[in-house]
Every structure is written in structure tokens, then in C-alpha cells.
Design a protein around this nucleic acid. Structure first.
Length: 577
RNA sequence: GGUUCGGUAGCUCAGCUGGUUAGAGCGCACGACUCAUAAUCGUGAGGUCGGGAGUUCAAGUCUCCCCCGAACCA
């Protein structure tokens, strides 16, 4: 590793909202690729910190808790555990999976608000809000319903009418009522909120965006579009109880804001930093060296993963907070945005039983099956459709036939003809030269694809390397040579076994559990499990002579048509109508 | 409605700043092999690159219009 300078890489994936288990599309759009990237960089020997957390504040959590008859915090505790378990089930290697409801985030959010205010970027403004006497609370726009002033549709939401599509202001609704309780005792009240004067930061932000060199064109154009339209000032407080309390510069409750909290939009991204603080406190580490440029974070590469809907948030809103504070916070260096995974071209839907959710997926198959499919078909260039047919084909062909069968054929042959030990005889010839060249070239491609965060291409190249192993065996044909020249056959077997070790090493980012099983079966020590350096490829000679080889159990089971048909019935498939 | 991104072989998708006979995987057909999860390896058939017009010596790749899909609009 001496020749590769050790890099410090901070990775965050967009925070999943606390409500409910996430579906495969959510997984594929940020958490999983971030994990694959984190694993790859760790294998390369770099210092990686992969942070994620649940985004817990806001009205939806409050209402869901109310519906479940639970206290909000208890509800979030429960949901957080569910999501953490799902993440663990998919082998997401978070260094920390935090919570935006943590005291660290409350402190940091308040800190940012004060820092922004000290620079004149926050002001109080009075606005009109809908208060429901029946609910005893202010209602967010979309939880007020009533009759549309334009089209008389009687179930128009306060923010928009679903019938005529017009954007509405809740105070204009006729016969307003609470969508929460149905109560009609509605009053329009004046209420004060803190506004973040984003307009003041227009130029600062533009300079920052234009200085960003490592963004994909789409991210850049989205950010610039917002800037071209002009940043608007935004309310960063809400009339809720569940959230970060609003305090004044002296640390006491801010007068007039006793019943208000910061808007979830404001505190959620700050949790990236706060979760790092949570991690540091739990592990006795230093969080500031990852986030504060005055405390050693200058050499950190910060990479963000997110869905396409979150790009503006990460390129504009959050940077406004960081830059506006006037403090030397680390900002994003590279970002990777994903499109959606669709279900046969349509939306995932719990109510219509369309799509598989994270917990259900693990009941059907181990995580590696899903990880492989979702990354090999990652929604990078455009939306990507999940289909059972495609899933079945990918699993059976890529995992079972190309990789699984390769491992099986070579280890079984070793067991039956070479007493289950790595044979030492024979000298490598042109077939071995061919496969080494092949590996060298492809390994370098693969590494480049990972560095570029091109996950589809990385999966395709991984598969191509596995396939090259099969081609090698066909060329070397040790089973033919064995009849006349045991030493020549031994070369093929030895090379094939070393290929298994290599295949497992390069498979670690994508299918970590299977890769670990293989490496364990081959008794490869941890020190030899790192990413093979394409520039200093050590050749196919890792395993010591005489090394015991026993065929591992079948790596991947094939998906039968009948099974897939069942699942298609259960979770939805191609629309039959 | 506005903006942005897509519409490439049966399926899922690659194709940087325009340039030889448009690519991959799966599926399909044929052949080879028999160590292996009826696996593997090889060969091949499949596309007027959504429609129309234009710019150019040359367009999937640029411009305009239209159709279809998706996302965003604080």
C-alpha cells in the first residue's frame, strides 16, 4: 500500500425518512451504491467514513405516531430500529447510522441558526397560518382541505387542488376543515417564523457552484437553474412540537417561538454532521477533522449519494446553511445522483401491492442476490425498471452460472483429482499468460469504473472477469490434459483456484456476504483480501502450494420459473391487463 | 402550465466534444466440450437509433416542430 497515498473519504447517503420500511428503489438510489463505494474504498486501503441516519422530524412522523397511538419519540425509536435492522440485513456497512432527533443534531441545528442570525441572514416575519381548534395545533398546508376557490372541487388540499391542479393558499379555501381530524373549527392566525435570507447568499453560492469541478452535468445544471431563477427566502421554522426547539442566541427559548421547532428541511442535512458527532462520541473519535476545514478536514474528499429529487437540496439548500454560517465547514466535493428504480415502469406502491420492500426482499432471498441485481441495473443514466424476468435472468446467469458454477467446477475437480490440495507441479504456459493479461486489463477498467462511481459498468466488468475465468478453463482444459500430463493439468487447476480467490476479492463491494464465504472457504487471511492493485497485480499465485481446498456449498440457488411466478403474484408483476 | 432529462436490437441498457460495416448482457438458433448448479466455451440471426423537417462533405450524436414517458417547480 506504500505507493498509494491514503485518502480520507467521507461518504453520506441521503437520509431515509423515518416512516415505514423503504422499497428496493430507495435502497438502490443512495444507500446501496454508497455502501458499495465505501466498501471499495476501504478495500483500497483508504480511510473511509460512511454516515447515514434516519430523518425523523416533521408532520408525517407526528401523524403516523398519532395514528399508531404512540408517542412520537417512541414511534421513531421503533421505526429507527426497523430501518437499522433492514440496513444491517442488506449488509450496509455504515460507520454510523444516526438519528436526526439526536441531541447532537439539536445542538448543531441551533448553532447554525445562531451563526446565520449573527450574520444577518435570519429574520422574523409574520405570516398567516391555519389553526385547528379541534386538533389544538397549526396545520401544514397539505393537511387543510376544503373547497377549491377556482373549480369548487370539495376535496382540494391547502397547497394544491387535485382536480384543477392549481396551486392554492390554504387561507383561500372555502369551508376549510382539518384533514387530520375532520374538524371544521378553523381559524387563520398570524404567527411568526424565522426566515433564512437565501437571496443574500446568491452570489456566494454561485461562486461556489461554479467552482465545483467534480459534479455531474445534471447536478450542476439543476443548481444553476435555481440560481438563475433567484434564491428565495425560506421559512425554517414550523408550528410543531416534534423537532429541534427554536432558541435565541443566549440559549434560552426564543420568545414567541416556544411552540415552534425548526423545519425538518433545515435540520435534516445538518444531521450528516451531527451523526458524525454521534459516531465520534460513541467510538472516541474526532468528528471535526472530517467536517471542519480549520480542524484538519481540508484533505477530506466528501462524496454524497442521493436520488435525483434531492439534488437541489444538496447543491443549494444545505450549502446555503454551511456557507452562510461563515464558518469553515467542509462542503461536498463529488456527488452521485440516481434516477428511480421503477416497478415494470410504474411506481412502487404499498396499497396496490406493487413492488418489494426491504424487509420482504430479505424473506425471499439473501441480500447479495438483490445487491447484485440492483447495482448491475442501477438507475444511473435514466430510470431503471425492475422486472422479475430480468431479476431471474441476472441471478441465474451472472451469479449462479458464471460465478457459482465456476467455483463449483474447479473446486470439485480439485477434490476429485488432486486430493483437495492445491497442486504445485507444472509451469505456466500461453493460456496462463492470456488470462493474466486479460485480468490485468479488466482489473484496471473495473477499478476505474469504481473510482468514477459507474456502478453498472463496474458490475458488468466484474461479471466479464468471472466469465474470463470460464473461458480460461475451456482453453486450458485440465480435464483433457490430465489423461496424459498430470503436471500440465495441475497448472490449470492451480490457476483456476487462484482465480476463485481473485473473483471473491473483486466481488466484495457488490456481494460482500458471498465473497466472505468464499474467502473463508479458501482460508485467505484478512491481509490478503484487499483490492488487487491493477498497477501492481501480483499475478495468480496467491494461494500456497498444498493449500487445502474443499468445495463450498452451492453459492447461489437458481430461481425457478414457478418461484418467480409466485412472487409475481404476491408482489405484482407485469400488468396483465 | 414552465423547466429539465429520457424515447437505440424481443427484454434491460452502453454509445465523450458529429466521422470507417451502431455495441453489451439476457433471450433465441446452431456448433463444441464434458471438470461443473442440463452449467461452460464458440459462432450466428435480429435495429431505416420515437416521428417529421433542417444544418453539414458526414448525424443515433447539432437546430426546430410534433408524439410518448419521467422528474422538478422552494
Amino acid at each position: 500500500m506504500a505507493q498509494t497515498p491514503k485518502r480520507r473519504i467521507l461518504i453520506t447517503s441521503a437520509l431515509p425518512y423515518i416512516n415505514g420500511i423503504k422499497h428496493l428503489g430507495n435502497l438502490a438510489g443512495s444507500m446501496l451504491p454508497a455502501d458499495v463505494f465505501a466498501r471499495f474504498q476501504r478495500l483500497r486501503g483508504h480511510d473511509v467514513l460512511y454516515i447515514c441516519a434516519t430523518d425523523e422530524h416533521g408532520t408525517p412522523a407526528e401523524l403516523a405516531a398519532q395514528q399508531a397511538g404512540m408517542d412520537v419519540r417512541a414511534y421513531c425509536d421503533q421505526q429507527h430500529d426497523i430501518q437499522r435492522a433492514a440496513g444491517a440485513g442488506f449488509d450496509l456497512s455504515y460507520d454510523w447510522f444516526g438519528r436526526s432527533s439526536s441531541p447532537q443534531n439539536a445542538r448543531l441545528t441551533q448553532h447554525f441558526a445562531n451563526a446565520l442570525e449573527a450574520r444577518g441572514l435570519i429574520e422574523e416575519r409574520i405570516s398567516k397560518q391555519v389553526y385547528s381548534h379541534d386538533d389544538g395545533r397549526f396545520l401544514p398546508d397539505r393537511y387543510v382541505e376544503g373547497t377549491c376557490p377556482h373549480c369548487d372541487y370539495d376535496k382540494a388540499r391547502g397547497d394544491q387542488c387535485d382536480q384543477c391542479g392549481r396551486l392554492l393558499d390554504p387561507v383561500d379555501l372555502k369551508n376549510p376543515y382539518s384533514a387530520v381530524s375532520g374538524g371544521t373549527q378553523i381559524e387563520i392566525r398570524d404567527t411568526a417564523h424565522l426566515f433564512l435570507r437565501q437571496s443574500e447568499l446568491q452570489d456566494t453560492l454561485r461562486d461556489w457552484v461554479e467552482g465545483a469541478t467534480d459534479w455531474p452535468p445534471l447536478a450542476r445544471s439543476i443548481a444553476l437553474k435555481w440560481l438563475d431563477e433567484g434564491l428565495r427566502d425560506r421559512a425554517i421554522t414550523r408550528d410543531l412540537h416534534w423537532g429541534v426547539p427554536v432558541i435565541g442566541p443566549d440559549g434560552t427559548p426564543r420568545p414567541g417561538f416556544e411552540n415552534k421547532v425548526f423545519y425538518v428541511w433545515f435540520d435534516a442535512p445538518i444531521e450528516y454532521i451531527a451523526a458524525t458527532e454521534e459516531w465520534a462520541e460513541a467510538t472516541g473519535s474526532d468528528w471535526q477533522s472530517w467536517w471542519r476545514r480549520d480542524k484538519g478536514a481540508d484533505d477530506v474528499e466528501y462524496v454524497e449519494f442521493m436520488g435525483k429529487d434531492n439534488v437541489a437540496f444538496h447543491t443549494v439548500s444545505f450549502p446555503v446553511t454551511l456557507l452562510g454560517s461563515g464558518e469553515p465547514w467542509k462542503t461536498v466535493d463529488r456527488l452521485k445522483a440516481f434516477n428511480w428504480v421503477t416497478w415494470y415502469g410504474g411506481k412502487f406502491s404499498t396499497s396496490h401491492r406493487r413492488g418489494v420492500f426491504m424487509d420482504q426482499a430479505l424473506e425471499l432471498l439473501p441480500s447479495d442476490y438483490w445487491r447484485w441485481y440492483l447495482m448491475a441495473n442501477a438507475p444511473e443514466g435514466s430510470d431503471a425498471a425492475f422486472t422479475w424476468e430480468g431479476f431471474q435472468a441476472a441471478i441465474n446467469s451472472d451469479l449462479a452460472n458464471v460465478l457459482g458454477n465456476f467455483v463449483n467446477r474447479i473446486t470439485k475437480y480439485t477434490a476429485s483429482k488432486f486430493d483437495g490440495a492445491l497442486p504445485a507441479e507444472g509451469t505456466p504456459g500461453e493460456d496462463e499468460a492470456w488470462i493474466e493479461t486479460e485480468i490485468r486489463t479488466r482489473l484496471s477498467q473495473l477499478t476505474a469504473h469504481y473510482e468514477a462511481m459507474e456502478f453498472r459498468k463496474a458490475a458488468a466488468e466484474t461479471r466479464a472477469i468471472w466469465a474470463a475465468g470460464n473461458e480460461y478453463l475451456t482453453r486450458a482444459a485440465p480435464w483433457v490434459k490430465f489423461k496424459t500430463d498430470r503436471a500440465a493439468a495441475a497448472v490449470g487447476v492451480r490457476t483456476g483456484l487462484n482465480l476463485v480467490a481473485l473473483f471473491a476479492r473483486i466481488a466484495q463491494p457488490l456481494i460482500p456476504a458471498t465473497a466472505a464465504r468464499l474467502l473463508d472457504a479458501l482460508q485467505i487471511p484478512d491481509a490478503d483480501r484487499s483490492w488487487p492493485d491493477p498497477d501492481r497485480f501480483e499475478g495468480l499465485d496467491l494461494l500456497p502450494e498444498g493449500h487445502p481446498i474443499s468445495p463450498p456449498p452451492v453459492l447461489f440457488m437458481k430461481l425457478e420459473d414457478a418461484t418467480v411466478a409466485d412472487w409475481s403474484d404476491q408482489f405484482g408483476g407485469a400488468p396483465a391487463d
